[in-house]
Simulated scan of single mutants.
Amino acid sequence: MRIDIISLIISGFVLLWLILNILFSPSFNRFDQALHQKLVKTQKNIFWKIIAFVNEPKLVIVWDVLLAGLLLNDGNYPLALWTLVTLGFTDGAGFVIKHIVKRNRPHAHLSEEEGYSFPSGHVLGATTMCLILYALLRRVLPEFFSIFLIVYWLFVVISRLNLRAHYPSDVLGAVALSVFCFTVVQSIYAALFLQ
């Protein structure tokens, strides 16, 4: 329970700090743009586009529904509901924050990338799904599974930067929001079903 409170405080603080700096600090935005230009040196290629496609926010919803369906098929209704609520709550919060911050995407982003930049929807969905999968499977799968999830998640992060779709703070904000929302829903689930 103490870890949950620490996760909530740290992720909430990071998220709020990023939002305030993006909205009100020109020097932070210049730094973020300069960091983005330094990080993005490679050419866009098909591998990163495939990673981005597989983690398209609408497709992540499909993965989540399929996972919930597997849990329902196993008769685990509370976990199925938790899986759907976790991603739904996180995506809803991401949508609201995108429309509050209204940050434009970096210059030279792909023309098919639409919408606002902060937070990254791809990273938000990938982080949330990785947290859900880890929570569900950490006790039954080997340690290698955790490493696989981290590598998979890193590929999504790199793809969003490599495709010039997001600034570094967009990615960090998505991770902070995902951890915050995951912790909230996990705490509520634990209070309702794990007593």
Rank of each mutant, 00 (worst) to 15 (best):
T83W: 02
H99E: 10
A93Q: 02
T86L: 11
V85Q: 03
T86P: 09
L87G: 01
F95L: 14
L81Q: 11
V60M: 12
L79G: 00
N76I: 15
V85G: 00
L72I: 02
T83M: 02
I100Y: 14
K98M: 03
K98L: 03
L59E: 12
F89E: 04
W82C: 07
F95N: 05
L71K: 06
L72K: 03
L67N: 06
L84V: 14
A80S: 09
G94K: 06
Y77W: 07
P78Y: 12
K58F: 12
A68W: 00
W63E: 13
V96E: 11
W63H: 05
T86K: 02
G75T: 02
D64F: 00
L71V: 12
V101L: 06
L59R: 12
F95G: 01
A80C: 01
G92C: 02
I97R: 10
I61P: 00
G75K: 13
G69E: 07
I61Q: 03
V85T: 03
T83A: 07
V101S: 06
L84W: 07
A68I: 03
V60C: 08
W82A: 00
K98E: 13
P78F: 05
L81Y: 13
K98W: 14
L81V: 15
D91M: 15
L71R: 02
V85I: 15
V96M: 11
T86M: 12
L67P: 00
V60Y: 06
T90C: 14
D64L: 06
L84G: 11
G94F: 05
W63M: 09
L79W: 11
A68Y: 07
L79Y: 12
G88W: 08
D64H: 01
G75D: 10
V60R: 01
G69H: 01
H99M: 05
W63F: 14
P78E: 07
N76C: 11
L84E: 09
I61T: 09
I100R: 07
D64C: 15
W82P: 00
Y77C: 00
F95D: 09
L87C: 11
V65Q: 10
I97C: 05
T83Y: 04
H99C: 07
D91L: 14
T83G: 02
L66G: 06
L70I: 03
G75I: 05
G94T: 05
I100H: 10
L59G: 12
L59K: 13
G69S: 06
L66A: 15
G88T: 10
K58R: 10
N73H: 10
D91W: 13
G92M: 05
T83I: 04
F89T: 06
L81P: 03
L70V: 03
V101T: 12
F89Y: 11
V62R: 08
P78R: 12
A93P: 04
L66I: 15
I100V: 15
I97H: 08
W82G: 04
L87P: 07
A80Y: 09
I61R: 00
T90P: 04
W63I: 10
D74F: 10
L72P: 04
G69T: 00
T83P: 00
L71C: 03
F89I: 11
V101F: 08
D64G: 10
D64S: 15
